[in-house]
């Protein structure tokens, strides 16, 4: 898969931002496709089969969530959502609907490019299905369930290990509280967000050098967690 061939669909109604993102995409040697509303976005999504969709939530013909809903019925390719609204519950809603990540306006191009790379890379890794992950001094082998930090084995409780492996399989993108609770606890404690927070706290104390200013296990306030590797 060569990066020249990668197509990115940009759905944004503000001309300047559309231009800005288009230039950033071109600079990454990807092919930008532009759409200014949901109707044309759906059309391009079917005809051009983009590898990634960048989607603004506030569009003239409706909320971007409706695009995610219909797109997810036939495509599993990553969707990055842009939103100027701060309300966290909207972010959670669009992520739970199937979007992979979000950026709040205003954002920097550097951050946008980093997110795009992470999403596209993750897709490649999922395809190769590597069981080993190395970030900082930490090495995780999902096949042997072994976690080491600076070559010292770290003992994780079953729940902590499960949490880490879910975050690893989704690394680079935000995973909502709800998704984590569902995958780790399997449908129980769906409303008990505090379980999650406390186990993430434990995990941070075991893995991070400075648990208060974590480098890898990041919090997305009001939304969920992201493992940045």
């Amino acid at each position: 898969m060569k990066s020249e061939s990668l197509k990115v669909l940009i759905v944004e109604d503000d001309v300047h931002i559309l231009d800005l993102i288009t230039k950033a995409i071109s600079a990454m040697d990807f092919r930008p496709i532009q759409a200014a509303n949901i109707a044309s976005a759906l059309q391009h999504a079917t005809s051009d089969q983009p590898d990634l969709v960048i989607l603004d939530l506030g569009l003239p013909d409706g909320n971007g969530i409706s695009f995610v809903n219909s797109y997810r019925q036939w495509s599993s390719r990553p969707v990055l959502v842009l939103s100027a609204r701060m309300q966290e519950h909207e972010k959670v809603k669009v992520l739970d609907a199937g979007a992979d990540d979000y950026l709040t306006k205003p954002f920097g191009t550097a951050e946008l490019m980093a997110r795009i790379r992470a999403l596209l890379r993750r897709q490649g890794i999922t395809a190769s299905n590597t069981p080993k992950f190395i970030f900082g001094e930490i090495a995780v082998d999902l096949s042997t369930r072994k976690v080491t930090k600076a070559d010292q084995e770290i003992h994780l409780s079953p729940i902590e290990y499960q949490l880490l492996s879910v975050l690893l399989t989704h690394h680079g993108r935000v995973v909502t509280h709800r998704q984590l609770l569902k995958e780790v606890w399997g449908g129980q404690h769906m409303e008990d967000h505090h379980y999650l927070r406390i186990y993430v706290g434990h995990l941070r104390h075991k893995l991070e050098d400075n648990p208060t200013q974590p480098k890898f296990l990041l919090t997305e306030t009001g939304v969920g967690y992201r493992l940045e590797i």
């Binding site: 993102i21 230039k23 950033a24 506030g58 306006k105 205003p106 954002f107 920097g108």
Partner: peptide, 24 residues
């Protein structure tokens, strides 16, 4: 409030993005 937040942040996004692009 919601539309204010949207309308004020959209031009800022362009500003910040353009500044970054100039720098790079």
């Amino acid at each position: 409030l919601s539309s204010l937040s949207h309308d004020l942040r959209t031009p800022l996004t362009t500003m910040i993005g353009l500044a970054e692009r100039l720098e790079e």
